[in-house]
Design a protein around this nucleic acid. Structure first.
Lengths: 357, 357
DNA sequence: TTCGATCTCCGAAACGTTTCGGATAAATAT
DNA sequence: ATATTTATCCGAAACGTTTCGGAGATCGAA
């Protein structure tokens, strides 16, 4: 019974396929311009009687406006392009991208914009990639770090394509949204300092990436500020990966004079660090405190739950979308916005026990 | 110095803005059709000399083909629409979607397709949503469960829009890709059975969703097959959420006769179950074995690493994309494909100790 | 030489919209 | 009565492509 009803509805809607504005005009013996005015409610007025007829036959014919045709004449597509980070396969596995995309899409829904995801840039050079981006299907673009280079972005702006970047660090010359990496690092360190830690290590990320560099910078600045000695052997690179964190932590814990706490440039390395600690028979946080960065979903689920730094990436995405629309519509937005982070204190950090000090 | 070079390159490319095929024709005193042939290498031949001139001035003028215009005449956009699951905000936080999107985008890159993410359906009814989808910007659509309803899909197919679904369970009447939920459940249960468990509980998901239902079904079928008694109190609903899993586990562990192992319909509930066990002073897996479903990233990072079932969601996405392209190009694909799952044995399951039995 | 075939190229239509300049008729003002 | 405004509607251009029908020119063969 339900089946019957559904079927009837469907056939009602599909009696004619792909009706255009011309079909409506022909059926009503009026011009296409009148139909367009009636359908859009402007910009010219239309007699009420005709308007109703147009709307009725549009419904009868199952008319659906062709956005491609519309955007060719208006020059707008109501679509925002997104250039995701990373090249090659599995580009969509990054939690960073997930959060950014979520923020972007939330706001896009509200702003009546759709999202065009560029997948085809892999094959091409940056310049050719821009040809793909600039082919009229998107009104503006959001570059998500760390794929784009300065040149890509420079090209895009030079070609009058409204564009915006979301990245670990500010990008010169373009509208960029980023977070205060140094400040975030300072927050974790202050927390560790407050509960009594003085020998604090750092597992750094990939130093070819700005955010890793800035977090390391934050670490160094904090030590300097608090007049704590900077020990070179307390900084080990971990490549932003679990395995790297594991290796780095092992190295740190084999030092003659161990740090009592370790800060990591991201959660993945912190997870690796926890695993390494367990491997060596150390308890977290009783024997060593470990803190991450990013507040990835996993950070809440591991044992012990990770003290970490929340980056408001969703908000970044949201702001980026709103700003790119401002740019498209000729308004100007902020040129460089740096978001503050939140310290999330959980169970992987605690004061050092007497014998550690 | 570097800066200078980059700037020069950019200005070379941007000397003229938005050159069209007409501009090339005018500059060379030839017709637009000739330019088109030269640019595309067909379908009509062009004298080699002219071809080179066209290519050269195209480069000079910074010509970039307008895909919107092209798709209006060809009727193809080389873009696949994706309708994500869930309504409302934070639709992009689901790990399921991440994996599916990753598989889709990997394949899309290879097939030279871009992805149009629909964000605007929230505001509308399903029928109106289809107007948005069918507006010519996408050649085909992939519906990702569980948002679409039978009616949406029926409408889409009736309107001759090539479409495909990725979902927890097969969808009647459309090309669908899903996984063998019962089979996956049977695999975990067989594993638990093999290592000696006989009293096995189940934390079910949201029973308004097909996959939760099918996993529960798999649980019941397995018990029946092995002639194990079905105990009603061994099945508790957990809403697919951590908190739900926690509550459900507490309930199960307070039973006079406890299960020695618990299977969960997803990893999130399993994580909750682990937490509940810890809260009650139980060790995992020594005092109770816990298994999840989905192989979410977190499942590897919690302590102990979760035994779970891997769904090849990425492969689903990949196949879905390939198939939707087949459909677009008039070939026909499979109508219903069910992928098998893999059992991932980790440390959260072990044989029950003597005194538990 | 002439006829047909082959090469090249051009002009124009088409895709489905939006929107501007006018045209016609009715209503109002002088 | 005529002149002016107002209310409606139409026709056509435009957006940037692709592609079909055909026109000239060149070439080979009879």
């Amino acid at each position: 019974m339900l089946q019957r009803i559904v079927s009837r509805n469907v056939s009602e809607i599909v009696n004619q396929m792909a009706a255009s504005i011309k079909d409506i005009a022909r059926k009503l013996n009026i011009s296409v311009s009148t139909v367009s005015y009636a359908l859009n409610g402007g910009p010219r007025p239309v007699r009420e009687e005709i308007r109703e007829q147009v709307l009725a036959t549009a419904r009868d014919l199952g008319y659906r406006p062709n956005r491609v045709a519309k955007s060719m004449v208006t020059g707008r597509s109501n679509t925002i392009g997104i250039v995701p980070p990373e090249v090659g396969d599995d580009a969509f596995l990054s939690p960073y991208l997930h959060l950014a995309l979520n923020g972007i899409s939330n706001e896009a829904g509200r702003m009546h914009q759709d999202i065009l995801l560029f997948t085809r840039y892999r094959e091409t050079e940056h310049e050719e990639m821009l040809s793909i981006i600039l082919d009229g299907r998107a009104d503006g673009v959001i570059f998500i770090a760390p794929y784009f280079t300065a040149k890509t972005v420079e090209l895009a702006t030079a070609l009058h394509l409204p564009c915006v970047t979301i990245s670990g660090a500010p990008v010169e010359g373009v509208t960029s949204f980023s977070i205060n990496n140094e400040g975030g690092m300072a927050k974790v360190l202050q927390h560790l300092f407050d509960i009594g830690h003085r020998r604090i290590g750092h597992i750094a990320g990939r130093l070819d990436m700005q955010d890793a560099l800035l977090r390391l910078q934050g670490y160094r600045m904090f030590l300097h500020e608090k007049k704590l000695p900077y020990r070179d052997e307390f900084v080990v690179k971990g490549q932003f990966l679990i395995e790297g964190g594991r290796r780095a932590m092992t190295e740190l814990m084999n030092l003659p004079l161990r740090p009592t706490a370790v800060t990591c440039a991201n959660d993945e390395m912190a997870i690796g660090a926890v695993l390494a600690a367990y491997d060596m028979g150390l308890r977290v946080p009783q024997d060593v405190s470990i803190a991450g960065f990013d507040m990835s979903p996993s950070s809440a689920h591991i044992y012990p739950p990770l003290t970490t730094v929340r980056q408001p990436i969703g908000e970044l995405g949201q702001m980026a979308l709103r700003t790119v629309i401002d740019l498209i519509e000729g308004r100007d937005g902020p040129t460089e916005t740096i978001f503050e982070t939140d310290l999330i204190v959980r169970e992987s950090t605690n004061h050092p026990t007497e014998e550690l000090i």
